[in-house]
Write a protein that binds this DNA or RNA. Sequence first.
DNA 1: TAGTAAACGAGACGGTACGTCACGTCTTACC
DNA 2: GGTAAGACGTGACGTACCGTCTCGTTTACTA
Lengths: 190, 190, 190, 190
Amino acid sequence: MLEGMRSERSRRAVLDATFEIAARKGYTGLTIEAVAASAGVGKPTIYRWWQSKGVLALDAVNDRMGQSRDFPDTGDIVADLTHQANLVIEQLRGDAGTVFRGVIGAAQSDPDLAAAVRETILAPRISKCSDRLARAVAAGELRPDVPLYNMVELLYAPIYYRMLLGSADLSPHLTRARIEYTLQGLRPRP
Amino acid sequence: MLEGMRSERSRRAVLDATFEIAARKGYTGLTIEAVAASAGVGKPTIYRWWQSKGVLALDAVNDRMGQSRDFPDTGDIVADLTHQANLVIEQLRGDAGTVFRGVIGAAQSDPDLAAAVRETILAPRISKCSDRLARAVAAGELRPDVPLYNMVELLYAPIYYRMLLGSADLSPHLTRARIEYTLQGLRPRP
Amino acid sequence: MLEGMRSERSRRAVLDATFEIAARKGYTGLTIEAVAASAGVGKPTIYRWWQSKGVLALDAVNDRMGQSRDFPDTGDIVADLTHQANLVIEQLRGDAGTVFRGVIGAAQSDPDLAAAVRETILAPRISKCSDRLARAVAAGELRPDVPLYNMVELLYAPIYYRMLLGSADLSPHLTRARIEYTLQGLRPRP
Amino acid sequence: MLEGMRSERSRRAVLDATFEIAARKGYTGLTIEAVAASAGVGKPTIYRWWQSKGVLALDAVNDRMGQSRDFPDTGDIVADLTHQANLVIEQLRGDAGTVFRGVIGAAQSDPDLAAAVRETILAPRISKCSDRLARAVAAGELRPDVPLYNMVELLYAPIYYRMLLGSADLSPHLTRARIEYTLQGLRPRP
DNA sequence: TAGTAAACGAGACGGTACGTCACGTCTTACC
DNA sequence: GGTAAGACGTGACGTACCGTCTCGTTTACTA
């Protein structure tokens, strides 16, 4: 997407319209036609740059959520993970989370979209988290025999479970306790 | 409303056709029209009994997955949970899991369907698991101060995370180790 | 339709409901389902006694319009025809005319219905008119060499033309003049 | 709205398919779906350009019947009217007449369609006929005190009556005699 | 007077067509 | 030369009625 000014203007309008419609009417109410109309853009222009409604919405989500941030490293692994987890929860509770849920939903029957979700959203964040956990392992705070990826999963899976299948809203309320339980199981054997 | 013989015949044909089409062509390829045609049933008959494609597919999934089973209780909580988790994983790897994934996907932008998923699929299974964990708490094997529902989440969230967001296929491979880590954090303080 | 009280009660309710619905919502808005619901009668009961929506509506029209009346014979053929024509026009301008128009419309692509219309509505009236014209012929007021049926047509066709194809409402306004012109052409050659 | 090449191709295919289906299966057997399928056109394309089945069929009729023709003027008013009436009868006896009957039938419960029938079919023909009659009045062949529109009605109403309500087929057999009777009543008083 | 067969109300059923929506492609006109 | 605009063929949507088919339930006649 290296095109000239015209293209860039369209790109912005399309992403903004996509996000706004998806947030307001839900992923189901998001249609290419509505985006085109709302963005003042022709449908073929959208199809030229985005393969499907799913990747379009994913692009809009990424556009809003921004890059994944580096983990803090205060030396306190529980505090650092809790802090970061709460940031994620906060983000998922907003409009971006709503749209993201829709994208994940669509990805359940669209492998290409699922791969794109993993690559553009999950992978960078998993990577950042792994880095921090690696330092904790090096510091002797966590067992060295559990693959980092599995640790990340244990920590984040409950958040996604709540978002995708939970009856109650996501809440940062018990994050710290949960992370403590989880890390308890990942500490080196005494 | 009495469901006479014809109704029951139709119901069976519709659920079977739904499951078969959803498994073969994916949730996206599942259409009411195709179900009606394949089941030899009129579309209005489907709409009469099922509110949406989502609840129809959910019904078909429930029809195939059957009732949730009681947990075994061998006295070994790790073994019992591992056994049951592997049964769940096995089920989710089959056609029922494929269709179920599609239903969960659709539920991301359909609150009614989400509620139905929780009520008909998750709640009974959570309840059975909670019962087993309660006995473990009573036996002093697990901390009494963590709500049972949270324990269940910690145990099952990674499975659903893998199914819905994971890059690799679900596999029962490391289930036991994972459950050991998790329970480690839930044991009573020494 | 020789059945007992039950049948007769249903017959009345069905004919009344049919007429009322057809008058209020137009022939297009008349459905067997609505008639059944409004008459408090099962659909099969209607299908048992009436072959189609068309003959049902025709029955309702006949029920309301009543039998054709004998022509007056004052000795003044112009006055008698004018009087009778105005009665017909009056009837066609009311609800019965509205429903009748719908029936005639349906009869355009339903030969059975067309035949029924001719037999139950037109034929008796044509017959009565022919009788009066026959007396006028016998009295030397009209040419004997024009078939009576053709005379009737010349007299009544303009009324039906107005009803079925006219832009203005039917009106008795110029009936007398029109009949005078018409009869002028049917008088014996001087 | 510009009708480009594709539009025109579709328009032709739709009108042809409409006429052909209506002629073969009757107005009742004419469905938008069948037209779309037979014309190789999408249903929305038909709904985009035609408001209803009725106006579509009317368009098809007009397409086949062509423009109304000017009346001949041989100086013999009876001959001219007879000639033209026979042309009309001939046209109404063909497929166009069959379809036209269906349209008129539908117009009985569709005021918009009725108006369209009058405007596109009847009005131009009435106008042409009126012109010829006006010349006959000017030539002293017909009474000047009868509105031309009423004269036209007297002349054509029997044809439409036969088509819409008659038991026998339309036939040009007695046209001349009928017109002579009718004009007899419209001649100037001696 | 009780028993029974019909006709009944109700309404689900397999269908057909409806008119609409959004899809993704393609063409035209403009800038 | 790329773009907005939007018509196109396609196909599924969810709805309205169709005419048929059980269902019990009256109800009026028969025994």
